[in-house]
């Protein structure tokens, strides 16, 4: 197997990416309902747009009962209630931010999985990028020190010994 084959193989793989996507494009064309077509399953909740908003928002929220699950996935009864509450708020026209404020005024910031950017979380949000920045600084300084470091000079006897060692079969 030559690398030409590998090249071709990989290109095929890359192209294979697009095929399922293309298949999607064609398959989402709506089918014309015929009189004996089976009934279509209805979405669980009538308003699909609100459901999508709810799903995205509830992934940002912590279930206060099963505390290490997102509100979107938690099976707890209170979680179901809270999702319904959010649904009702959204139907009443509240924005995402208003929904979040509604919940944090009742449960505190604890319920947000994405910590808000306030003084108590400055370190949290800035930290990682500061670490990287600090690391880059360390990198620069280490390299500057390296450049001035000279390796020990090697004499001809050492070179000959090295050549002999390289000759030895493993």
């Amino acid at each position: 197997m030559t690398f030409r084959h590998i090249q071709q193989g990989l290109l095929t793989v890359f192209l294979a990416f697009s095929l399922p996507a293309l298949a999607n494009e064609s398959a989402t064309a709506t089918t014309i309902a015929s009189p004996d077509a089976p009934p279509t399953a209805q979405p669980l909740f009538a308003d699909v747009a609100i459901e999508n908003r709810l799903t995205l928002l509830s992934r940002e929220l912590r279930c206060v009962v099963c505390q290490n699950e997102a509100l979107s996935e938690s099976p707890a009864e209170l979680a179901t209630d809270m999702r319904q509450e959010i649904r009702d708020l959204m139907k009443a026209g509240k924005t995402d931010q208003e929904v979040l404020t509604f919940l944090t005024s009742r449960y505190g910031d604890f319920v947000l999985f994405r910590p808000p950017f306030k003084p108590v979380t400055y370190l949290l949000w800035i930290g990682p990028f500061a670490f990287l920045g600090f690391g880059v600084l360390v990198w620069f300084m280490a390299l500057r020190a390296r450049r001035t470091f000279q390796s020990a000079p090697v004499n001809s006897a050492q070179l000959a010994a090295a050549a002999r060692l390289l000759e030895e079969k493993p």
Partner: peptide
Amino acid sequence: KLSVGPPY
């Protein structure tokens, strides 16, 4: 009390 989750 804060939570730090997947979005972060």
